[in-house]
Simulated assay, not measured.
Amino acid sequence: MLNPKKLEMSFKRYSNNFVKGIKFEDVVEKYEISKSKINNIVNLNDIEKDHILLINLNNISSYYLSKWKNEVLINGGVSSDGLKTMQIVVFYQCMAHELYQIKYPKMFLSYSFAEAIKALMHFTMFGWKKEEKILFDFIVRHFGKHLMDANNWNKHTWFLLELYLQYRNKTIVGTNQKLHITVREQFKKSDLEYDLIPEDLDIYSEVLENWATPQLDEIKTLIDKMSVFHSNLASELGESIEFGDYRYGFYPYEILFLIHVREKIGLPVPDHFNDLLMNTPEAKMTIDDPEPYPEWDPLLRKIDIFYRKNYPDYIPNKHGELFQ
């Protein structure tokens, strides 16, 4: 049962983390350190040390995380530009890691399966079809391998991926139905790690069976159940592995994606919500259809140009200009 007081206290800690905890000036300082390292490698065209460019993408992402939180969560703005740049960074982390498969085959990944799916979902919501397709192809090509380790416990991540597949009429491992079960079985047969993949998706299984219902009351009931599930886990901020993190804990992106998908195919959606989760500043961000690309981060641009110049097999080289 949801404890409203506990949820409110968690939300206060979630917000205060970007005021009293992660201070913006500290994030800016790390960004400036990364700037120096990136400029040095790029100016010298130092291919032997260029994996440092990939490592420093994390500091670029952290910088825009803080910008997003300050703009929306702290100051009450509605711009999603910081969030958009964060998802773009995940895209380039994926693209760059593919370059190091031979040189550093066991290199620690700077993104996770869950983060890649979040980026894919956001690209879809933003209407960035070209980049969405490139990222989806990457996910399929490496699914279950080192670059896309799908042995992941997040139930909402499997929900998002399956909903995406059904919406786009695509498949992974030959299916878009009960995907987590099929993947568990296939990974087990292939002697791949599968123990973290959930055996059930809780409320998300019910939603996947009924997400395309034409009945407004039915989808409203399902969304309310999703919100309670998310809110209970967000109440365990710092402890829950599903929604207990300070980046996305009170940002109901899985519900917003469901609403987006239904709107795109002409199905009714609720026009208001009464719960805390669906009324957080992040839930109320303005997202246009399509959403304009944000201004390029200058360090990210330098990294992209460097890889395009030195690696003919770099995926973006095959697709021309991106994110513009």
Rank of each mutant, 00 (worst) to 15 (best):
M1E: 09
M1K: 06
M1N: 12
L2S: 00
K6F: 11
K12G: 02
R13L: 10
N16D: 03
N17Y: 07
N17M: 05
F18R: 00
K20D: 13
K20C: 05
I22K: 12
E29I: 11
K30I: 09
N39R: 14
N43T: 14
L44C: 09
D46G: 12
D46K: 11
D46L: 08
I47Y: 11
E48L: 13
K49V: 11
L53D: 07
N56I: 02
N59R: 08
S66G: 11
K67W: 04
K67E: 12
W68M: 03
I74L: 08
G77K: 12
S79P: 01
F91N: 00
C94L: 13
M95E: 00
M95V: 12
P105G: 14
P105L: 12
S110E: 10
S110D: 13
E115W: 13
K118V: 14
A119Y: 04
A119Q: 02
A119W: 07
A119M: 02
L120Q: 07
L120G: 00
T124P: 02
W128I: 10
K129P: 03
E131V: 15
E132V: 11
E132I: 15
E132Y: 15
V140Y: 08
V140C: 13
R141D: 08
A150F: 01
T157C: 05
L161F: 12
Y164F: 06
L165V: 12
Q166C: 01
Q166E: 06
Y167N: 03
R168H: 08
N169A: 07
N176K: 03
H180C: 04
I181E: 06
V183T: 11
Q186M: 04
K189C: 07
I197K: 05
P198N: 04
E199L: 12
L201N: 03
D202F: 10
I203D: 00
S205G: 08
L216V: 06
E218S: 03
L222V: 14
D224Y: 07
K225S: 07
K225H: 08
F229E: 04
G238H: 07
G238Q: 09
S240D: 05
R247N: 01
I255Q: 06
L256A: 07
L256P: 00
F257C: 03
F257Q: 01
F257K: 01
L258I: 08
H260S: 09
V261Y: 03
G266S: 01
H272Q: 13
N274M: 09
L276H: 07
L277C: 04
M278Y: 09
A283M: 06
P290V: 14
Y293V: 10
W296G: 03
W296Y: 15
D297T: 12
L299W: 14
L300W: 05
L300K: 02
R301I: 11
N310Q: 14
N310V: 15
N310D: 09
N310S: 07
N310F: 14
K318G: 13
L322A: 10
